[in-house]
Structures are given as structure tokens and as C-alpha cells.
Simulated assay, not measured.
Amino acid sequence: MATPTELGRTRYTQVASVIRSVVQQVQVLWKGMSPTTVEDDLEGAAGAAIVAAVAQGQLTVADAAQAYIAAQMAAQGGTALAEATLVAAAFAGVAPDGGPLETLMFLPAIGVRRRLAAGMGADEAMLGGLADMARYASTAVADAARSADQVGMAANRSCVAYVRVVRLPACARCIILSGQMYRYSEGFLRHPNCDCQTLPLRENEWPNVPTPQQLFERMPQREQRRVFGVTGARAIGEGADVAQVVNARRGMSRPGASTTTEGVTRRGLYGRRMRRAGGGFASYPGQRYSRSTTPRLTPDAIFRQASGRGEQLELLRRYGYIV
């Protein structure tokens, strides 16, 4: 049987592979766009194809989450059986802030327009827009994977915590959080393009995860200086605490949105459930379909608000993340 560390590495590789595939698809689609028509392109077929590629990536990583949690719990001597089944589709089509993925994927067009207005050349402006698009797409898929993993942890009572796993190359902000352990329901600190992952734990014990100091020692000297700065790298090398050299929370955040508009139309995943339950719907200007008048909480909001695992599971069911 694979060890927890090996299982975590496999999960990381799977998510990273999906992200690479999505970014490659985005790059191909972006090359067919023009700086003079980028807004129309992203509102048209090219934009729809990009959103579809990212949403499919989110669906793929979310679909593998529950099997990953089950394997981790079994490897640690717990039960692989969960109390509920994760709904992978609930994590697709949603931006990290809980808004529609379409809105996030349009932002690079605004970036291109701003670069052009600042006097940047067309090729350079489009290159910057592609970098924005790749960052947004990568973050959306990675966040979907982490969110699905966390819901999977909640659905399995064997899981009580998770530890943050950082893999090199990594930034200073992530390195100093390596090996930190959190309750299974505590939000994951991340920044755009963050590829750190959760390693679920059955018991409150440290797995074989490198400490910040160990990660620093594994880095080539040039990489140490790039990540921590020349003076910071020198200070750490002379014995300074890594966490004291770096501000732990600079640029880091937890997914903070309380509600999401994804799936709230009559045809949406959550909307269909509300319709069966007799919930109300209303039409809004510019919207093709009426939307549920009952806001849909995000998983992160549920974990923040619920008083215990029982209430978490109840709310996760109510809002369509598990069945």
C-alpha cells in the first residue's frame, strides 16, 4: 500500500498535470486573438472555449478528490468510507472568489487594454494578457482541487486535520508555512498561482513533510537569493529563523467569498435543488435565466459558519456539494 506521502505526491502530480493541460489549451486559443479584438474574442467563441477548458479542469481535479481522501485515510489506518458523496460538478465553473468563471476569464482583456493605453506595444500587451490568463486559470483549477479535498475531508470523520505540503520551487511565503498543521475545516492560505496542497491526517501527528529550514537547505544558492533576497538568504544561512525573515501572511489569503452565483439558475445544480424544495426565483436585467432568491454559500463560508462536522455536512448537502 502506498504511504500517505506517496499518495500526496500522486495527487499533486495529477493536479499539476491537469493545470498544465489547461494552460496549454488556453495558450493555443489566445494565439488566435488580436489586441484590437481581444474583448470581443473573450466574449465570443474563444472566450467560451477557454472557460470550458478551465471548468473541465476543475471538474477533473474535483472528481478525484474523494478517492484521494479515502486512500489517505485507509493508508493511515482509518476508514475509507465517507458519510456522503462529493458532487464534483459543484466545483466547476466557479472562480476562486465565488463569482462566475466567465467574469474571471474576461479580466485579461482589461489588462491588455490597460497596457496598450500605457503605451506598451501590441505584442508585449498580449503577452502580458496571456500571463494573466494562465495565472487565473491555474489558480482556479488549484483552488477547485483544494476546496474539493477539504469537502472530502469533512465527509470522512476519520480525517481530523491537514498539513500543508510545499514542493520546490516555491516562494518564501509558502516555504515558511511548510509542515504547518490545521483543522480539516480551516481555510487554506494561498496566493495566485499557489500550488501547495493539503495532506489529510487521521491523527494529530506530523507526517514526513519538510520544514522551512529543510526546504531552504535543499535550494541552490542562486534560488535562495532569488526567493529570500541576498540579505535574507545570508541571514537564514547564518542561523536566522526563516519565519522571522519572511512575513508569513504577506500576499496570502483564504478564499473569502461567502456566496457564489454558480449553479443558482433554475437549470443550475443548486437551482434545481431549490426548485424541488419550493424555493423562490427572480429575474434580473441582463440575465437570461431567473435565479434562486436563496444565496448559495461557498464551502469556505460553510466551514467558517458551521459549529461542527454535523452542521457542516448538513449545509454542504443543502448547497449541493455532497449528496
Rank of each mutant, 00 (worst) to 15 (best):
97 D>V: 10
84 A>P: 02
69 I>V: 15
86 L>M: 10
98 G>C: 12
87 V>S: 03
95 A>S: 15
66 Q>D: 11
91 F>K: 00
74 A>S: 14
79 T>F: 12
94 V>S: 02
72 Q>I: 08
72 Q>F: 08
98 G>P: 10
84 A>S: 14
81 L>D: 15
75 A>P: 07
92 A>R: 00
73 M>K: 01
97 D>L: 09
71 A>H: 08
93 G>H: 04
86 L>E: 03
91 F>G: 00
72 Q>P: 14
85 T>W: 03
85 T>P: 03
76 Q>F: 07
74 A>M: 13
76 Q>R: 05
69 I>F: 06
89 A>C: 04
72 Q>L: 10
86 L>R: 00
92 A>D: 01
80 A>F: 05
85 T>H: 13
70 A>K: 07
80 A>T: 07
92 A>G: 03
71 A>R: 12
65 A>H: 02
70 A>M: 09
81 L>I: 15
85 T>Y: 06
90 A>I: 04
89 A>T: 13
66 Q>P: 09
77 G>M: 08
77 G>Y: 07
66 Q>K: 06
67 A>V: 10
74 A>C: 04
71 A>Y: 03
86 L>N: 01
69 I>C: 10
74 A>H: 10
66 Q>T: 09
87 V>Y: 00
93 G>A: 11
91 F>C: 01
93 G>V: 10
89 A>G: 09
95 A>D: 11
82 A>V: 05
64 A>M: 12
73 M>R: 04
95 A>V: 06
81 L>V: 15
95 A>L: 10
77 G>K: 10
94 V>Q: 10
74 A>Q: 15
97 D>G: 08
82 A>Q: 05
78 G>F: 08
95 A>Y: 05
65 A>S: 13
86 L>D: 02
87 V>L: 12
87 V>M: 09
83 E>V: 01
66 Q>A: 08
85 T>E: 14
80 A>V: 06
91 F>S: 00
79 T>N: 15
91 F>Q: 01
88 A>I: 03
94 V>N: 02
69 I>P: 04
68 Y>H: 13
88 A>E: 04
77 G>R: 05
74 A>L: 15
69 I>Y: 05
73 M>D: 07
65 A>I: 02
65 A>G: 05
67 A>R: 14
83 E>P: 02
64 A>C: 07
94 V>P: 00
67 A>Y: 06
94 V>W: 00
64 A>N: 13
94 V>E: 12
78 G>N: 09
90 A>M: 05
